[in-house]
């Protein structure tokens, strides 16, 4: 009986305490933010949308490689000697035309892993969260401001320049060979010639690999990782090739050798991929 009464007391006390609390809340200020009319002040680090400042982008692809969901696609073309792409605001020299920089915000997981590796701080998260759309293709943001004609022009120019360079090199080598052959029965000469041959081949292969990789990256969907890696490496090789213009022959030879090796590997990989497909 005592237990019954104390239970009853406990019941009603708890119910009335609860009702008191809800009554009090009836008159406390509500926490609702009347969204379109009122807006929260967002902290500066919010991760809502990716934005790229193309003036600063050097096409290094670090962001592309950092992305865990492969939502960034970058395409680059080497710039020719006569073009000066200028410097970024952080003082990096730009050496590549970035002809494609697409971010698929529908894939993006907002982890911000791409923002941190950027050497020029050109990819950032911005405070814009009202970009929903009815078509998921609208969520693919293209940042590159190059027109297709420009891209074509740049690529054609590059090809022309490389052709010229190759010719020049061949001529130089031919001249060297000649000189060596004239200089006596030096056995090293044959070796140099053969190395020159492979060099030229390798360069061609590298360019082919690069182009192919770019195409692969643009198609994007198949074998994302492989394509991304090879195109990344190709970009680097392109960069180093561009660097090796007016240095002395020794250095160039060494670099060419390295490049040849890399290109050979790439060509092998491409071939493998092709055979797989």
């Amino acid at each position: 009986m005592v237990k019954l009464l104390s239970d009853t007391y406990f019941t009603f006390r708890s119910i009335f305490t609860g009702m008191g609390i809800t009554w009090r809340h009836l008159f406390t200020k509500s926490v609702t933010v009347q969204y379109p009319a009122q807006r929260d002040v967002l902290p500066e680090r919010v991760r809502l949308k990716l934005d790229v400042n193309m003036d600063d982008c050097i096409g290094c692809r670090l962001c592309e490689r950092a992305c865990p969901v492969d939502c960034i696609t970058i395409g680059t073309t080497k710039s020719t000697d006569d073009d000066d792409l200028g410097e970024t605001s952080t003082g990096h020299k730009k050496k590549l035309w970035v002809d494609q920089f697409d971010i698929d915000m529908a894939k993006c997981c907002y982890c911000e892993l791409c923002v941190h590796p950027c050497p020029t701080d050109c990819i950032t998260m911005v405070e814009d969260y009202e970009y929903s759309s009815y078509d998921r293709n609208d969520l693919i943001l293209s940042f590159s401001d190059m027109t297709p004609e420009q891209i074509e022009e740049v690529q054609a120019k590059l090809e022309r320049e490389e052709e010229e360079k190759r010719k020049k090199k061949e001529e130089a080598r031919a001249a060297k060979e000649k000189a060596k052959a004239e200089g006596g029965k030096d056995e090293a000469g044959g070796g140099a010639a053969s190395s020159g041959d492979t060099d030229a081949d390798a360069e061609k292969a590298a360019r082919r690999a690069e182009r192919e990789a770019k195409r692969a990256a643009r198609k994007a969907e198949r074998e994302g990782k492989d394509a991304g890696e090879s195109s990344g490496a190709a970009g680097e090789s392109g960069g180093s090739a561009a660097k090796s213009d007016d240095t002395d022959a020794d250095k160039e030879a060494r670099r060419a050798e390295r490049e040849a090796k890399r290109a050979a590997r790439k060509a092998e990989r491409e071939a493998k991929k092709k055979s797989e497909e």
Binding site: P43, R45, V46, R47, Y110, C111, E112, M125
Partner: peptide, 12 residues
């Protein structure tokens, strides 16, 4: 959390 990391649910 949002002030520190920029995200409200999946922080990384």
């Amino acid at each position: 959390f949002e002030k520190a990391s920029g995200a409200r649910l999946l922080y990384n």
